[in-house]
Simulated assay, not measured.
Amino acid sequence: MKPLVFLILALAAVNAFEFRTLQTRNVEMPVLDEPTGRITNGEKATVGQFPYQVGLSLKLNLYSSSWCGGSLIGNSWVLTAAHCTDGVQSVTVYLGATERTSAEATYTVSSNNIIIHENWDPTILQNDISLIRIPSVAYSNRIQAVKLPNIADSYHLYTGDVVVASGWGRISDSINSVTEDLQWAVLEVISNTKCAMTYGSKVILPTNICVDTSDGVSTCQGDSGGPLVLVSSGVQVGLTSFGAADGCEKGYPVAFTRLTSYLDWIKSHTGVVYY
């Protein structure tokens, strides 16, 4: 019997360290940690290595805020997870940063500039995707939009493909705060069938994409919403959604929102055209 898993959408807090937690209805699976990163056991990024990486400081109320990742997909649009932006009052967007809050450009926008998927379901973490509208930013060596999949790739599963995840999330299970330096890790996509052996077929749906973390290299709390990009082409295929609550270094698969399932949704709200 699979261990009972709790889906933890962890947003590493900047002010009052706070985690948002969700749990499935008695779904048998391993304990889910927040969307995953030292990325645990990852590498430190160099300046300009991930120009599409975005940092998000999310104001929850007067006294607390949380941290997530995201990706720049156009001059005025940031892509992230719904569980990051659900219920926030405002968000400060950091662009072109390697050191977490030392950015080339910073914008603070209200919740009116956040678009959460209309079918976002926090009980099972489905349709975990949202958009943030920001003032138009100029591209530079440190700020560039990531490529999105072509609509023709909508049925591509990516199983076995090599991908890279990046973010400022926790660098180990023993640390309770996000890291200051951007981290990255190379991972391998696994089949949804294999991923469902851990989390169950009611949780892992075609709109998810999963990676193997059996060597302890994973995303972690604070990496939520961050990009999963194909090493071969630089195309973003996923965004960090959830992992096992037992810990980021335990070797359980990590689940991402599969972007090929949401290309029409992204285009309808942003006008961003796939390459």
Rank of each mutant, 00 (worst) to 15 (best):
N192L: 00
N75Q: 15
T257S: 01
S65T: 02
I129D: 00
L62G: 04
D33H: 13
G42V: 09
P206A: 06
H117M: 03
N208Y: 00
L182P: 14
A145M: 07
V217H: 08
I209R: 13
S130E: 07
V203F: 05
G48N: 08
G169C: 10
Q49V: 03
A105Q: 14
N15H: 13
A81Q: 02
T179I: 00
K147M: 02
T159V: 11
A245F: 10
F19L: 10
A105L: 11
V78Y: 12
V229I: 06
V164L: 06
L58T: 11
V186T: 09
T207L: 01
A185R: 00
A81E: 12
H117G: 12
S76V: 04
S64Q: 07
L148T: 06
T92N: 09
N41V: 01
V217M: 12
T193H: 03
N119D: 04
L148N: 05
E188Q: 15
L32P: 08
E249Q: 12
N127G: 01
C210N: 11
T40S: 13
D128K: 02
G87M: 11
G42C: 11
T260Y: 04
G222C: 05
P35G: 15
K147F: 08
S130C: 06
I73K: 07
A185Y: 02
D215G: 12
W184R: 08
T257C: 04
V5C: 05
L125S: 13
F50P: 00
V229H: 07
L9T: 03
N26T: 14
C220H: 09
V88E: 05
G222Y: 00
E34F: 05
G271N: 10
T80V: 03
T101E: 01
D212E: 08
S136K: 13
S130R: 07
V217D: 10
V189K: 07
L58P: 00
A145C: 11
F19T: 13
R38Y: 03
Y139N: 09
S232H: 10
G87C: 10
Q53R: 08
T123K: 15
D121F: 06
P30W: 13
T179R: 05
K2W: 08
G42R: 05
K194A: 11
V78P: 01
V273N: 13
C220E: 06
I124K: 11
V211G: 02
